[in-house]
Amino acid sequence: MLDPQMIQTRGFRNTADGFEVRLRLPYYRGVWTDLIVGASLTVDGVSYPPSAVRWSIGGSADAARWPVDVPAVLSVSRDAPLSIGFHTVAAELRLTMSYIPEELQPTVWTEERRLVITR
């Protein structure tokens, strides 16, 4: 089951080459992945632009659709793992909605949460 917030508490962890965090789609229905403009992450004041964030949806890097009940896994490469303990994580997600006029695009969701890395 997913947290109601966009940034999920489960899945925040170190990886072999950096860290990953999971996002729930904040929109009420699924979206095609070509409508995802990108996401930026900030961890403890260090910003990672959309170009530094790799996506995986449902275990696939080339998924065609992001369903509302499947978290996206966002991965970031860094030289050292994040320290064990609490971190302030902020995400900014940008989506294009096919039915909203271009001059009002993209739709932006932002959120900040305190997450913990346990190992």
Rank of each mutant, 00 (worst) to 15 (best):
P81A: 08
Q8N: 10
S77M: 07
M1V: 13
R29V: 08
A64Q: 08
A72N: 10
P81N: 12
S83H: 10
L93D: 12
F19G: 10
A64C: 04
L2A: 05
W66H: 07
S75V: 02
S40C: 00
Q105P: 12
A64K: 14
I100H: 02
G18P: 09
M6G: 06
D17K: 09
V46L: 04
D44R: 02
V31Y: 05
G18A: 07
V46I: 11
F19W: 14
S40Q: 02
D34C: 01
V108P: 11
M6Y: 08
Y27D: 11
Q105D: 13
L104G: 01
T96P: 00
T15M: 03
L93W: 06
R113P: 08
G30K: 06
M6N: 06
A52T: 08
L115N: 10
T107N: 07
P101Y: 13
T42P: 00
R54D: 14
E20S: 14
T15D: 10
V76G: 03
T33L: 07
D69A: 15
Q5A: 14
R78E: 06
G45H: 05
P67R: 12
T15W: 03
D44G: 04
R65T: 07
I84E: 09
A61Y: 02
D79E: 11
T33F: 01
L35P: 00
L41W: 04
E102F: 12
I7D: 07
P49C: 03
G85W: 08
L82E: 05
H87E: 09
R54K: 15
T15A: 07
M97V: 14
P50M: 03
D44S: 05
P101G: 07
G45S: 04
T96Y: 03
R54S: 15
V37I: 05
A52F: 00
S51C: 00
T110Q: 14
S60I: 01
V116Y: 02
L35C: 04
D79Q: 11
V116W: 01
G85D: 11
F86T: 09
P50G: 09
Q5D: 15
T33W: 01
R119L: 02
V76S: 04
T88F: 00
N14L: 10
P50I: 03
Q8Y: 08
E102S: 08
R13W: 00
F19S: 13
T33S: 03
D79M: 03
Y48K: 03
V108E: 08
S75W: 07
G11I: 02
G11Q: 11
W55N: 06
A72T: 12
N14W: 12
G85N: 07
H87F: 00
E92R: 15
R22N: 14
L74D: 02
